[in-house]
Design a protein around this nucleic acid. Structure first.
Lengths: 138, 138
DNA sequence: TATCATGTAACTTCATATGTTACATGATTG
DNA sequence: CAATCATGTAACATATGAAGTTACATGATA
């Protein structure tokens, strides 16, 4: 299974999430720079986790890839000439910090390991449900 | 001044924020639907506040125009077929609710009146600084 | 009735995320 | 060493949505 031992190729990951290998590499490059994953070239190469999955949280991933994309709110222009914008920024700068802090705290509470466990539970249930359907038809 | 008594035209607003009158109307249309502003046609027409500025907060405005744009985070697909997506959604749905609630609370604490007062303060300071520069040159 | 302002549809940029192609680099295998 | 496999990356194509623009209808005022 992905993430356990054997390297996974961008090709496999792309197929699993219905996208393109190059897109996968782009995203993974961010994760690698943050030391979350490793990549190896050549035969038997691909991506592996660089840290224990109990030690990687969604906060790490967010910092590596999500920050510019997901926090589209807040932080417009930092030093606007517009006085209205200045007033709004001033009134909300503390709020944005608070909101972001809470968000990061919640992201930090979710480990890859926990997600993987939940995923496996869902997968088992999914398979079971498929089998039930087959039996029902028979 | 804008917002006090006399209606303000989309033309004036557009000029004040360096954009287009039609764009202004589009945004203001959302505010009007929420009962925050009124519009009048013809001579002397334009936009006026529909409620007391002490009674309008950024939360009202956010609900009227910002929700789809600003909360680009969270709420991807509601019922994804992807089991990984399901696991992540499940792990974070509570978090998103919390974060959004805090955000709304902070927005709700900022009234238009407070912003207007702060704006006027900045405007006065700005003018003062301009005059100082003139004196310095002389 | 002439003018002014909103209301809106339709179209045109513009920016950005995503997808795609092509090729270079490095690692493994026989 | 040559063939193959996989990442690394640049360059380009496509799709989406926000913002800007044009044009015209509607209604209000003088």
């Amino acid at each position: 299974m992905i993430g356990a031992g054997e390297p996974v190729t961008s090709e496999q990951l792309a197929q699993a999430m219905a996208t393109n290998p190059v897109v996968v590499r782009r995203v993974m490059a961010g994760l690698r720079e943050q030391g979350l994953v490793r990549s190896e070239k050549g035969h038997g190469g691909g991506w592996t986790l660089a840290r224990d999955p109990t030690d990687i949280t969604l906060a790490d991933i967010y910092r590596a890839v999500g920050a510019p994309t997901i926090v589209a709110m807040g932080h417009r222009s930092e030093n606007p000439g517009c006085l209205v914008e200045q007033a709004v920024n001033d009134a909300l700068s503390g709020a944005f910090r608070e909101v972001e802090a809470l968000f990061m705290k919640r992201l930090g509470a979710v480990t890859l390991d926990a997600l993987a466990k939940d995923f496996r539970r869902r997968l088992a249930k999914h398979k079971q449900s498929l089998e039930d359907q087959i039996h029902a038809v028979k």
